[in-house]
Simulated assay, not measured.
Amino acid sequence: MMNSRDFHRSPSFTERLSGLSTAFKMFPFIQTGQRILQPFLEKFGFSVQEVTDSVKLFLTNGHPALTFPFLRPPNNILIGCANLLGSKSAPLQFSPQISQFLNESVGKDVVYVSFGPYVKMSGVSWYSQLVEILTELDLRVIVKVDKEFEKEFPKSVLPLNWAPQKDLLRSGKIKLFISHCGNNGKMETIYYNVPVLCIPQFADQPVNAELVKVKGFGESLMKEDISVRAKEVIAAMIANHGTYHRNMKRASDIVENEPGNARENLLYYVEQVAEMGNVDYLVNKVARQQSTVEMYNLDIVVPVVVIVIVVVGFILYVLLKFCVYFSRKVGMAGFRKLKNE
């Protein structure tokens, strides 16, 4: 566990102890990330460790205000929303078809549904079922479909083969975004303050969905539960729209207004690499020299577990002795009473 303000020395016992609870919370997320990357890298003959050892600078599409507070090394620079900063006031660009649909939807709740440009949703039964649930709730729906999608929709549904997602999300006309929760969509919906219902499919999407739920930006639902829970969850999210919106706005305001924002960080470090050829001064060399015992805090975990087991065992032993003593006392008192009678 490294202290990012003083990372050129080995962390002390107390520093690692203070970070242990965070490490336990984040362990499932860290392992998921490694599992996602490994099959892709193996195709090119690399391992996750080889890549992390050779790459000196990581530019990550994330921001502490928008995502769970991951423990990150000094050479992992967050540039999330760098491409979105200042875009809230830019002119909206909608096709006549979309503009007409939004104009006809004034006074009604509009839901935008998209599972990305590369996923083929034609023939996926739960996708059609999801849209049917939305129409049953009397919602206006803009839904992203592929060209092979042949289902006919009612007038309250606008099917699109391509949708200007960022413009829709920042228009202020979308009440709820239903998404697979890929990282780009997650960042956009939070930045533009549109509550999101995540229905993750693969890769990093289950982790993103969990983070959205933890931060209060939206909810998560598995596709297997759509028929059972979707109507209830969507209705509750529409009713509680303001709470999700406020949580998102607090986060996006931090991103928008913080000094040294994501765009400035991106430009600064790209210029550093161009000028200096590397950013070795950011690389945490001590972390790579830590033993397995230190890295996984085994010198803390093992003694603590042993102490807990001993204490619990002692308490159980005392309780057992007390129960035996009490039962004997009760038995002797009953025996004396019978003898006197």
Rank of each mutant, 00 (worst) to 15 (best):
G218Y: 02
F335V: 15
L319P: 04
N193Q: 13
K175V: 04
F149R: 04
L221H: 08
L168T: 03
V214D: 11
S4N: 15
V196C: 12
M248K: 05
R170L: 04
W126F: 10
S122H: 01
E152C: 10
A82W: 07
H63F: 05
S125V: 13
Y127F: 13
L137K: 12
V279H: 06
I226S: 03
D167F: 01
K144N: 06
I315P: 15
D53F: 08
S21N: 15
F202L: 14
S4Y: 15
L282G: 03
V55Q: 02
H8R: 09
M121C: 03
L17F: 11
G218E: 02
L176K: 05
E258Y: 15
F149Q: 07
H245F: 12
S114P: 03
M332D: 14
K213Q: 08
L176Y: 02
F68R: 13
M187F: 03
P206T: 09
N278K: 12
K329W: 14
V196L: 04
E50Q: 10
Y118P: 02
K215E: 11
W162G: 00
S54F: 06
V279I: 04
S54P: 05
V228I: 12
F153E: 02
I178S: 04
A203T: 03
A262W: 06
K223Y: 09
G62I: 00
V302C: 07
A65E: 08
K147P: 12
R170T: 03
Q38R: 07
D146S: 04
S156C: 10
L139H: 01
G123K: 14
G218H: 02
F202S: 09
T67L: 06
P96K: 13
S105P: 02
K108Y: 04
D204G: 14
V308D: 09
L85E: 01
I199A: 00
P91S: 09
N297P: 03
V293A: 09
F177T: 00
V304F: 13
C323D: 08
T189W: 02
E104M: 06
R170M: 02
E224N: 06
Y191A: 10
L158D: 01
F68C: 08
T14G: 09
P11G: 02
R328D: 06
P11Y: 02
G334I: 01
V145W: 01
I254Q: 10
P303T: 14
S327V: 09
A239C: 06
A287M: 07
T67D: 14
L320I: 12
D53A: 13
E152N: 08
I174E: 01
T22P: 03
K108F: 05
R328F: 14
A262E: 11
L59F: 15
V318I: 10
L59C: 06
R336A: 08
G218V: 03
E104D: 10
F149M: 08
N193T: 12
R9F: 12
L71S: 13
A209Q: 00
A203G: 04
V113T: 07
A287R: 04
F326N: 07
A209K: 01
V312Q: 15
V113E: 00
